[in-house]
Design a protein around this nucleic acid. Structure first.
Lengths: 192, 192
DNA sequence: ACCTGAACACCGTTCAAGT
DNA sequence: ACCTGAACACCGTTCAAGT
């Protein structure tokens, strides 16, 4: 005689995301998630393989949010590449400020088992890579994209970790960085 | 009647560092460390406050290694700033390749409780900041230093995480980045 | 077909009792 | 003064038994 469902995968992932942002990854336990959705911990294993799998699903859900965000920014500002790149970089940083723990899960995962798939992450940052390629030209596209993503993710990771200790304004530091990078990466013989 | 010491803080930290690199942070357990140094787990608490404290000591020991490394590179190459900055950046990357788990502990710590002190980390990267300040001039020194450290730590973090998925040569990508950054950050009116 | 209590292995940590 | 076994709270996970 079937028991009616008392929760769902969506509920579980949503509860896990809430816990992640409010309590941190180490406090995201199966018991805490089960409490939130109103079942006992063993019941979660009907819907996720194990804790790592659940954390990975949280990462995937976060990546999906980011994909939507960057896509909408990319479409909202079809102007000059030199303006679009900074706007995408700022959108990434804003997203990180809104969901710092989720952002870290995607861009600084602790272990491969909890990492979102390379494909979905690639899809999320695709607008960034496209605009960098446009800026740097085809020969340098890959190296330039790696330089920009390394800088952006490094800056945000340090900011979230509180690693910028010497005072000063971080918004200004971010703008300084993106401005200099745009100048440094622009193709030497621009067409327009 | 006193019992003779069967281990020491040095032994414990050394065993923890070995375990960290060979097994990963999650397998660095008090029991595993105790096994390695030949005592029972509760005995470790005579020498460290708790596991976080031990992990933090591992981070501090790693930072001390890095300090020595960067200092020796800085002193070995007293030439042009535009050459010294790339050499320091390469030394940081080499260090990360040699001790990836220790490096991550220092530059991508999971929690504040296991983080090396801001002062010792600042001391370690001081040669890098000095050379960037020389390159960029006093007005832009701080922003330029943040741009370079964000890029370098971001690049290395992505490399260690296997996040560069699109092929190509990572050594070349690193050289591309540092070359463009040096050009982008050099003071507009260089003296020499 | 989902949910649960009971159980197991493992971990960090405390502490009284040994030497 | 250090070391130990025993114990506790907590966690992830499995599974037989319920409905």
């Amino acid at each position: 005689m079937p028991t009616p469902d008392r929760t769902s995968l969506d509920d579980i992932v949503r509860a896990a995301r809430d816990l992640l942002e409010s309590e941190g990854l180490s406090r995201l336990s199966m018991q805490a998630v089960a409490d939130r959705v109103g079942v006992r911990a063993p019941s979660l294993y009907k819907r996720v393989r194990n804790r790592d799998d659940l954390v990975r699903l949280v990462a995937e859900a976060t990546v999906a949010d980011l994909t939507q965000r960057l896509d909408s920014v990319a479409h909202a500002t079809p102007g000059d590449v030199r303006l679009r790149l900074p706007q995408l970089a700022r959108a990434l940083r804003t997203f990180a400020h809104e969901q710092p723990a989720g952002y870290r899960l995607v861009f600084s995962p602790e272990t491969a088992a909890t990492t979102a798939s390379a494909e979905t992450v690639a899809l999320a940052v695709e607008p960034l890579l496209t605009v960098v390629a446009e800026l740097a030209g085809p020969d340098d596209a890959l190296n330039a994209a790696r330089t920009v993503t390394a800088w952006a993710t490094g800056f945000i990771a340090m900011e979230l970790a509180g690693a910028f200790q010497l005072g000063g304004n971080l918004d200004s530091a971010f703008e300084f960085g993106i401005t200099r990078l745009v100048a440094a990466l622009a193709a030497r013989s621009p067409l327009g």
